[in-house]
């Protein structure tokens, strides 16, 4: 149960970061100057800041909302956990792949690292690892459980 709570809190934290980056992208928060935002302005103003025409932080916001909803549901209604754990792994695997793609862009194409993007990528990695451990535990419990 504790791990599921951690998952929900991680997703919520990621959602806050994504919301900040979305507002930053639309010029509603942060300094409208270059050089004072730990590389975020370089990343956010690059042509890669849009994915399928939608700002990348908005994708993050939507993704974290889903990840939070899944983790929260498993805490609130434990009988759904076995089914939802697989969804959490599946969705966070997609998020992890997307994060790796964004990290590669930052390192090798844009040549700038935004610290808030890195924080989000670490959250996705932790979420994925914890949700995977839940599924693996569930599988081993099923395998060793009473026949």
């Amino acid at each position: 149960m504790i791990r599921r709570m951690i998952l929900a809190l991680l997703a919520l934290g990621g959602g806050v970061i994504s919301l900040y980056l979305t507002l930053y992208k639309f010029g509603l928060v942060g300094s409208v100057a270059c050089g004072g935002s730990a590389g975020c302005e370089v990343v956010q103003t690059s042509p890669y800041a849009l994915f399928l025409g939608i700002p990348v932080p908005l994708w993050g916001l939507g993704g974290y909302a889903l990840l939070f909803a899944l983790a929260f549901a498993t805490v609130q209604w434990p009988h759904l956990a076995a089914r939802l754990d697989r969804w959490m792994v599946g969705l966070s695997s997609l998020a992890l792949l997307f994060s790796l793609y964004l990290t590669a862009l930052e390192l090798f194409v844009i040549h700038a690292i935004c610290r808030w993007c890195v924080a989000s990528q670490v959250i996705v990695l932790l979420y994925w690892a914890i949700s995977l451990s839940l599924v693996r535990n569930g599988l081993s419990e099923t395998a060793t459980g009473p026949a």
């Binding site: 806050v16 942060g30 300094s31």
Partner: peptide, 9 residues
């Protein structure tokens, strides 16, 4: 946190 980092133009 978001409110405190408001517009600084």
């Amino acid at each position: 946190w978001i409110a405190s980092s408001g517009q600084k133009s």
